[in-house]
Amino acid sequence: MAQMPEAMRPLRILIAKPGLDGHDRGAKVIARALRDAGMEVIYTGLRQTPEMIAAAALQEDVDAVGLSILSGAHNTLLPRVVELLRQNGMGDVPVFVGGIIPDEDVPGLKAAGIAAVFGPGTPLSEIVEFIREHTPLRHPIADRNSRLMSDYG
């Protein structure tokens, strides 16, 4: 348990709904489940563009991004989110997806950098477990610290 203090840091997860569909019940169920698992969930609501999602992920310094999408626009919107996160230096932040995704689209999304696709009926515990396993608890600033501190320290 040498990593106790780091391990106790609450994970920060962004839950967002890209695209134009107006149902966020699923997203809210996930948000609550993650809250109940001790995570800090930033919930940004409906009709988010990939640009809005990436900007929120950046400013909130999240450990993972969860996207809920029912509209069928996943093949265009989701890879764009991954791309924008990479441009922001957040390529190591896992993106997981829930909603209605046809099986044949899953390999393409994974190739585009989506870490996991959770279809309807996925147990919430599976999603919680996935996040815990795929968010290496980053040291918040240590790797940037040398540059920041060298100028001002």
Partner: peptide
């Protein structure tokens, strides 16, 4: 109880 939170203020700041 869990230390978790739902932070929802961004909804009104989109």
């Amino acid at each position: 109880f869990t230390g978790g939170a739902i932070l929802g203020d961004r909804i009104r700041m989109r």
